[in-house]
Write a protein that binds this DNA or RNA. Structure first.
Lengths: 212, 212
DNA sequence: GACCGGGCTGAACACGTGTACAGTATCGGC
DNA sequence: GCCGATACTGTACACGTGTTCAGCCCGGTC
């Protein structure tokens, strides 16, 4: 029953690291705490990852991979979402694509909240991998902005660099500020209803602005 | 010459705390490091603030006060900026007010970059005072949003809660992500030219959106 | 059956942390 | 002058940290 079902220690540690680091911060959470929460000895963490630094690097990488896979639509679910994710920019108008992308991100956040919460934290703390993480996200965002610009959807006088950053902040900053947000929104940020409001507000802002 | 010019130990510690905490993070910077950077003994920090927790609380409070004073236009400078800051919402159209508010925030950031960098950090780490800090900013933002709505400037179908949060993120998230931003922008975020681009991009986004 | 290798542990180590305490210097008021 | 208060320091302590290491268990291989 080992190979079919049970989780290896390494997997348990990573999975726990998402949760604990995401909740309490990376710098202020000790390797021992992660080990305790995962139900293993601190020495095992060292055994698998070489130390705390290695653990954080491995967690960074695992989080990024899982997020990327889910966003692209890989994994156990049906193939329909992959289909629509792969349909290129050409053909759809900007508004529709924008909404679809936003919903896609929201779906991933609802599917794997711990991973996303961790990513939000990693970005904002000085993790070794966070610079690469950030660069990846920004580059991806920039491509979409450029594609939307080619398609004529982007306002022609827009500053594309800052447009990319604005996209990034509107999507990722809430994750980094999540503990504070619960007080302002009544709900959990990642509750379905809240997620819908979030997506809707972002789409509206990007399409029409706030002030007419 | 003491009382006229020299800085007291307490002031030196707080001023240093802005810089060091802002650069390296609060949780991952030791009380000893702050003391060393300030040129005093660790015991003095304990003497004045009771411990690290107290130091962080005092730094929070000092940062918030200085930012508030500067934003409101108190302090050594001429009184003209205070004048324009106090001119209420009524009378000006939304766009003009919006631009003025953005420029005002940018001015404060250029004036006291360390304080602002610290605030960006404090918000994102689980500081004791950061919840209050956040609430204050959100409440202030909400008031402005409501005022703009009364004046008819806000899009009528906008979600005011999320509109407030969007304002907040567009302004404060860059501070929290500052170490990462330097790579994407060529410049320093708080360099005057970059600051202008930032303000301009925000105003444009809030007025017209990104996609027409 | 012997053997090996990898997952895994408990005990130990050196070190940095936050903090307490006793003591010194310096300044203002009597 | 003295005196008390306050700013400030050096030393010491208990504790949690990341890390090391010798050794356990256990499934697979010759």
């Amino acid at each position: 029953m080992r190979s079919v079902e049970a989780e290896t220690g390494r997997e348990a540690i990573i999975r726990t690291a998402f949760r604990v680091f995401g909740e309490s911060g990376i710098a202020s959470t000790s390797l021992r705490e992660v080990a305790r929460a995962a139900g293993v000895s601190p020495a095992l963490v060292v055994h698998h990852f070489g130390g705390k630094e290695g653990l954080v690097a491995a967690t960074d990488e695992a989080a990024l991979r899982r997020f990327g896979d889910a966003y692209r639509g890989d994994g156990a679910e049906g193939s329909e979402s992959k289909r629509e994710a792969d349909s290129g920019v050409r053909g759809g108008d900007g508004a529709e694509l924008l909404r679809r992308r936003a919903a896609q991100t929201a779906r991933v956040m609802a599917e794997m909240p711990e991973v996303c919460a961790y990513l939000g934290r990693a970005l904002v703390e000085g993790t070794a991998g966070s610079a690469a993480l950030f660069r990846l996200m920004i580059d991806g965002g920039r491509e979409e902005v450029d594609a939307l610009a080619e398609a004529g959807a982007l306002r022609p006088d827009a500053d594309r660099t800052w447009a990319t950053l604005q996209h990034f902040f509107l999507i990722w900053a809430p994750l980094s500020f999540m503990p504070l947000l619960q007080g302002v929104l009544g709900d959990e940020l990642l509750a379905p209803a809240q997620l819908d409001r979030w997506v809707e507000a972002n789409v509206q802002l990007l399409e029409k602005g706030l002030y007419s």
